[in-house]
């Protein structure tokens, strides 16, 4: 059953006031809703070096009511596998193991251990919060950064390459559940995490997580930025259950009712795109459209 209104979300908060994330952090909001969908008393979270490490608190204090195992940057998939195996071997039943990693820890340095874990069919959930760069170390380029974005390692020319299609790489592992989400659509996010929790095997959710300092937009625009990403189809909301694709939430409405906004609408509110040229906007638009039409086609095929 889909959640229809924000008031249906559990009231209990698992992240207490006083985290070390920035104000208006998309990751923080993602984590907040995700924990509500999980059962934090029976959840073990694996976290690599990232903004999540910092969010989880500095020893000996943690603001998060969940067991968290921090692991080295590249090791998330493997650490989660070890947690799953360790729980099983010692007879601790009923836990959900959830990895929470940034795009750098997923698309780049962690891709090997993630792929290994997915290929082995490890019974865990992997959430990649995609803030489109190495934010913890100060906004360097990752392979998830969009073309045209200025980062501290693409300072003059801006990023020349398009975002890596990580979701297709993940999908190629033929795992039972793949989904995208956004903290700007909390009910969709909540439902997907809840659904993933009940599925056995490897589940992957990628959450587009706007980051005000990294992207260069005012804190008050956090939700707006996530919505714009969906309205422009820069970030498309969908889920793939056992290979069956379907658009969800705002992306579904966009497919049914039309009204897609342009990439130019999306980039203009973010200073990271301050150097983007007309040509690059054009290229980004084409890249976005091509993906969007593919998704719409898959949605149609999934229904027929």
């Amino acid at each position: 059953m889909a959640t229809k209104a924000a008031k249906e979300l559990p009231k209990e908060e698992f992240i207490l006031p006083g985290t070390r994330s920035c104000a208006a952090c998309g990751l923080m909001l993602t984590y907040r809703h995700s924990l509500k969908a999980l059962d934090p008393g029976k959840t073990i979270v694996a976290v690599p070096a990232s903004c999540m490490t910092v969010l989880h608190g500095v020893y000996p204090i943690t603001p998060v009511k969940v067991i968290c195992v921090n692991n080295p940057f590249a090791a998330t998939g493997a650490a989660a596998s070890g947690i799953v195996a360790g729980l099983k071997a010692t007879g601790k039943a009923g836990y959900t193991v959830v990895a929470f990693a940034g795009d750098g820890g997923t698309y780049d340095i962690g891709i090997q251990s993630l792929s290994g874990a997915l290929e082995r069919g490890t019974d865990f959930m992997y959430v990649c919060y995609d803030n489109e760069g190495y934010m913890n170390t100060g906004t360097q380029r990752s392979s998830a950064s969009p073309a045209g974005a200025v980062t501290t390692t693409t300072p003059i020319l801006a990023k020349l390459q398009h975002k890596k299609d990580m979701l297709r790489i993940v999908e190629a592992h033929r795992i039972p559940y793949v989904a995208t989400a956004s903290p700007s659509f909390p009910l969709d996010l909540y439902d997907k995490v809840r659904k993933a929790k009940e599925i056995k095997g490897s589940r992957y959710i990628e959450v587009h997580a706007p980051c005000p300092p990294g992207w260069g937009f005012p804190n008050k625009d956090l939700i707006k930025m996530g919505k714009l990403a969906a309205d422009t189809a820069v970030h498309v909301l969908y889920e793939i259950v056992d290979g069956k694709f379907r658009l969800t939430s705002r992306s579904l409405r966009l497919a049914e009712k039309g009204g897609k906004k342009t990439v130019a609408d999306y980039v203009k509110g973010q200073t990271r795109f301050k150097k983007i040229t007309e040509g690059q906007i054009q290229a980004l638009q084409e890249f976005t459209d091509r993906r969007w039409y593919e998704f719409m086609e898959r949605h149609q095929n999934g229904r027929s």
Binding site: A80, G82, G116
Partner: peptide, 22 residues
Amino acid sequence: EYLTVESEHSAMASVVAASQMG
């Protein structure tokens, strides 16, 4: 539990995490 991991880095990462589970 025998994990046929994809690298030694992952082998050590998994056994460390499993050990943390007891």
